[in-house]
Design a protein around this nucleic acid. Structure first.
Lengths: 295, 295
DNA sequence: ACAATTCTGTTCATGAGTGCACATCACAAA
DNA sequence: TTTGTGATGTGCACTCATGAACAGAATTGT
C-alpha cells in the first residue's frame, strides 16, 4: 500500500525542517492554516503523531524525524531530476532514433555518422525496415519519408530534398548498344523491380504500365540486391542518380524524369519537435542536403 | 530550486508506469481529466516533454523514463516509511525518555531497568536535572513530577503514588537519646536542608518555620550528599520513608506527617499519550507502584 | 466493412481545499 | 506588570482544482 499524498509529506518535511508551521507556510507559499491541515491529515492517514505541538512551534517526534530524513532524500532526488531534465532539454545527449525506408540508408548513413561525430554525447540509432515506424509511439525521433506528403496528425512535416530517379544498366548488359535507346523500344528490354507489387512509386507505375510482364525478369525485396542484379547485367533497373553515379560500370539509359522524382519529407512528432536534440539533427540533415547535387 | 509539486510527479509516475492516462486515473482514484492536467502542468513546469501523446495512450520520453525511475524509488521509500511508522505506533521500540526530579531517581531507576528488560527493543533514557524538562518540546515522553498538580495545557496528568516524608537521623548522631524527641524540643537539634531556599516543598517550609537559622548546619544541592551527611551523623534531615528504610543505621525521629507527603504525578504530552510505547511505560509504572509500601 | 471499445481532450458546474480574519497562547522585553 | 511579538488554532467566504459529460479518433472484434 503506497502513500497517495506526496504533497502532504512535502509539507511535513518543511515543518520538520524549520520547526514552525508559519515558517514552513512561508517557504511553501501557502497559508499556515493549510500547513496545519496537511499535518493533521497526514498524521491521521499514517496513524502516528509526527509532531508535538506547542506555542513555540512544532518539534518532530521520532516518526517525524524519520519522515524528514526520507523526505530530505526525496527532495534531493527531485531537485537533481529537475536540473537533469532541464539540461537534457537544452543539450543534445542521449539516444537519437532516426528511421527511414531502407533504400535511403546509403544516403543517410554517412550524414548520421557525421552528426554523431559532431555531437559525441549522442547515440544515434538508425532504424530501417519495411514496416513504418510510428513516431507517435516513441519509436523514433525523426523519420525521413518518401513519396506523397504524410499527413498524420500530431506530426510536423517539413519538405526535404528530392531524389532523382533514372533507369540504369551495366555496361555488361548494354554491350556495344548505342545510347540513348529510343523510348518506344524500351519495353523490349529486360527489367527489374521490387518484390511488393503494391509499391505506389511513380516510376514503378510507369514500368508496370509500359513494360510487359514477361520482360520483368527479376524482383527483389531490397534495394541492395536489385543494385547487384543491375551491375551483374541482368537488365535495366531504377536507381537513384546519386547512388548510381558512384559506380563506374553503370550507365544511365534514360534520364531522370520529373514525374519519377521522389520527394523526401522530414517528419517529427510535435512533442519532440522543439527539443534541442531534434532541432540539431534537423539542421544537420538540411545542411547536408544543401551540399548534395541530386539534380 | 526544488520542485513543489510532488503529487504531480506521482501522477506522472503512474502514467509512465501504466502507459495510459485512463489507467493511471483509475489507480489514482481521480478523473482522467485531472491526470491530463497534472501532466501538462508538470511538463510546463519542467520545460520538457515527458510523454508523447497518441490515441493508444502516453509513452514516456527519455525524460519521462528518467522521472519514472526516480519516482519509483520515491514510492518505494514512502511505502517503507509508512509501514515503518505504522509498526512504530503499535510496538514499543526506539527511544523512551523519562524525566523526573533527581530525588526520585533511586525509586524509579530499578523500575525503568525492569521495563527495559521486559521490552528489549526499547532504549530507556532517564534524565534528571534541576531544570524542568518540557514535554511539549519533545524533551521527554513521560515526566514524573512531584508536588502540586501540574496543569500545563496539552499535557495529560495522572495521579500517581504518594511519597511519605519523615525526619531521620543516624544512630551515631542520636547516641543513647530516648525517642521520640518531644516536638517542642526539635528546634534545638541540628538540621540539614537543600541548597536552594525557594523549595516550596511543605516539609521544608515547616523546617524554615520552626528551626532557627543557626541550627541548619548544612545545605546540599542534591539528595545523595544530604543522605550521606545524615548517615555521617551531622544532624536531622528529611528523607523519603522507603529510601530511609533501606539503611539500618537511620532512625526515624519524627513520623511522617500527612502535610509533608508529596504526591507524584505522571505527565505525558497529549500527542504522545496514546502511543503504545507511552501506554506501556505508564502501565509498568503503575504496576510497580502497586507493589510499593509507601504508607 | 462496420460496430464496439478504448483511449485522449475539452467544456462547464460543483465541491473540497485554500486564504483570510480573528482568537488564543507563550515568551521576552520594557 | 504590561506590552509586544510571533506562534498555533478555528470559523467563514471564496477560488481553484476536480469531476461529469461529451466529442473525436484510433484500434479491435465481428
Amino acid at each position: 500500500m503506497s502513500i497517495d499524498a506526496w504533497d502532504e509529506i512535502r509539507t511535513a518535511y518543511h515543518v520538520a525542517r524549520l520547526g514552525t508551521v508559519s515558517g514552513a507556510a512561508e517557504v511553501l507559499g501557502v497559508h499556515h492554516a493549510t500547513v496545519i491541515r496537511h499535518i493533521d491529515a497526514l498524521e491521521k492517514r499514517l496513524g502516528t503523531k509526527l509532531f508535538q505541538r506547542h506555542a513555540r512551534g512544532y518539534t518532530a517526534t521520532e516518526a517525524g524525524q524519520d519522515l524528514m530524513q526520507v523526505a530530505q532524500a526525496t527532495d534531493d532526488q527531485f531537485t537533481q531530476l529537475a536540473s537533469r531534465l532541464k539540461g537534457r532539454g537544452d543539450s543534445v545527449t542521449g539516444e537519437l532514433v532516426v528511421t527511414s525506408i531502407e533504400s535511403l540508408s546509403p544516403l543517410l548513413s554517412p550524414v548520421l555518422a557525421e552528426f554523431q561525430m559532431a555531437n559525441p554525447g549522442v547515440t544515434v540509432r538508425f532504424v530501417t525496415g519495411d514496416r513504418v515506424f510510428r513516431l507517435e509511439y516513441g519509436e523514433a525521433h525523426v523519420a525521413i519519408r518518401a513519396g506523397t506528403a504524410p499527413n498524420e496528425p500530431d506530426n510536423v512535416v517539413q519538405r526535404y530534398a528530392t531524389v532523382q530517379i533514372a533507369l540504369y544498366a551495366s555496361r555488361k548488359y548494354l554491350g556495344d548498344r548505342v545510347l540513348p535507346i529510343p523510348e518506344d523500344e524500351l519495353p523490349n528490354e529486360k527489367f527489374m523491380g521490387y518484390e511488393n507489387m503494391d509499391s505506389r512509386a511513380p516510376f514503378y507505375r510507369w514500368m508496370e504500365d509500359k513494360v510487359p510482364r514477361h520482360n520483368i525478369v527479376m524482383r527483389g525485396s531490397d534495394g541492395r540486391s536489385l543494385k547487384h542484379a543491375i551491375r551483374a547485367g541482368i537488365g535495366l533497373g531504377f536507381m537513384q542518380t546519386w547512388e548510381a553515379s558512384q559506380y563506374e560500370d553503370l550507365v544511365q539509359v534514360v534520364e531522370p524524369k520529373p514525374e519519377w522524382a521522389a520527394p523526401l519529407w522530414l517528419v517529427t512528432h510535435v512533442d519532440l519537435h522543439r527539443t534541442a536534440k531534434v532541432q540539431a539533427i534537423l539542421a544537420h540533415l538540411k545542411a547536408a542536403a544543401d551540399s548534395w547535387t541530386l539534380v
